[in-house]
Amino acid sequence: MENKNALLIIDAQYDFCNPDGALYVQDAEHDIERLSDFITKNATELNHICVTLDSHPVNDISHPSFWRDRDGNPPNPFTQITLKEVEEGKWIPNFYENETKEYLKKLEAQGEFPHFIWTHHCLIGSKGAALDETLSEALQKWITINKEQGKYKQYKAVTKGTYPLTEHFGIFQAQIPVSNRPETQLNQSLLDSLNQYENVYLAGQAKSHCVATSLKQILDNAPELAKKVIVLEDCMSDIPNMGHLGEPIYKRAKKMGVQFKKSNNV
């Protein structure tokens, strides 16, 4: 059956998965090895693979270059910035001050993720934004193995994060969608395309942020799809000391019937 098994891989890119990457997630390279083995061993059973690509401009609201303090210095990575601090002048946006304040107001009202500053990462067109090399090789093997079976396969790549004035953790929509920016709004077509399959395996980086938020967006917007999701729990890792941010999402997912399995036990 050609629409039985799909695999959704979140942000398995150099900057997250390589120890030399700009925003390396500890142990991600081992997650990638397990995920690549999973793809190769199950090549003829995986009917569809979708990879997501975090893709940011340099002056992104989550990057140091977007901000300065009273003395003109950019914030250090992993600095949390609140609306109150902006209103008090502790942190000053270098661009779009009104839009930035409105964004922080909505983000804090949402109550899910605080606004953190990351290192400059996954810059559009950069080495850091590229798929991890080990995974890329596994995807090519998947295509070749299916070709030998007379089947045409090609993975689908979906970008996120290109609009600089909102975080975009989950693949299906930005943290705060913007009315006149379609790239930030709900990607219903992607949800619908995945919902064609009986099983949708989920893996990627980071477990605490982008994978968790993508899963939450499935739970919120496509509960019928959620019942098909199988999380490959040994193919993802938390950003250190931030696992608590995603944990409520995974607890909710289990209650809604999402399965959690090891990649070698599927």
Rank of each mutant, 00 (worst) to 15 (best):
A203R: 04
S214T: 15
Q173R: 15
K141T: 13
P164K: 09
Y163M: 01
L219P: 15
V158T: 12
E183V: 10
V229Y: 11
D234P: 04
S208E: 10
T159F: 06
L190P: 04
N187R: 13
K228L: 07
F172Q: 12
D220L: 14
K141I: 11
Q154T: 11
V158Q: 03
K127Y: 06
H209F: 13
N221S: 13
A212N: 10
A157G: 02
T162K: 13
E198R: 06
P177F: 01
A129E: 10
M236Y: 11
G204N: 05
E198L: 08
T184W: 03
A157L: 09
V231G: 05
A138E: 06
D220W: 13
T134Y: 01
T213Y: 04
T166G: 08
A174G: 12
Q140P: 00
E183F: 04
L232M: 09
A138N: 05
G170C: 09
Q185E: 07
K207G: 02
L219G: 14
L219N: 14
M242V: 11
L215E: 12
M242G: 07
T159N: 10
S214A: 13
K153E: 14
S179H: 13
K147C: 09
S193F: 01
A138L: 02
A212E: 07
A138H: 00
E224Y: 05
K127N: 14
T144I: 07
V158L: 04
L135W: 01
L232V: 09
M236I: 01
L191C: 03
S208K: 09
I239Y: 12
P240F: 07
K228V: 08
L219Y: 10
L219D: 14
G128R: 00
Q205M: 14
R181H: 02
M242H: 15
L139H: 06
L219W: 13
H209V: 01
K160S: 08
K127H: 11
S179L: 05
H209Y: 09
L135T: 01
A174N: 12
N241R: 12
S208W: 11
I218Y: 06
L190Y: 04
E224R: 09
P177V: 03
F169W: 12
V158S: 02
N180M: 06
G170F: 09
K207M: 05
A206H: 06
I143W: 06
I239A: 07
T159P: 03
N241I: 11
P177I: 03
M236W: 07
P164T: 08
Q196S: 04
K227M: 12
I230Y: 13
Q173M: 15
W142I: 09
K160E: 12
N180T: 12
T134Q: 08
Y155W: 15
V231D: 08
A130D: 00
V229R: 03
F169V: 01
Q205W: 01
A130W: 00
Y163F: 15
K147I: 07
G150D: 11
K227P: 00
M236V: 05
P223R: 14
E148K: 15
N221F: 15
L219R: 11
L232P: 10
R181N: 00
C210E: 06
Q205C: 02
H209K: 07
Y152T: 15
I176M: 13
L202P: 02
A203D: 02
T184M: 03
E233I: 06
Q188C: 04
Q185P: 03
A206R: 03
H209D: 00
A222G: 11
D234V: 02
N199V: 05
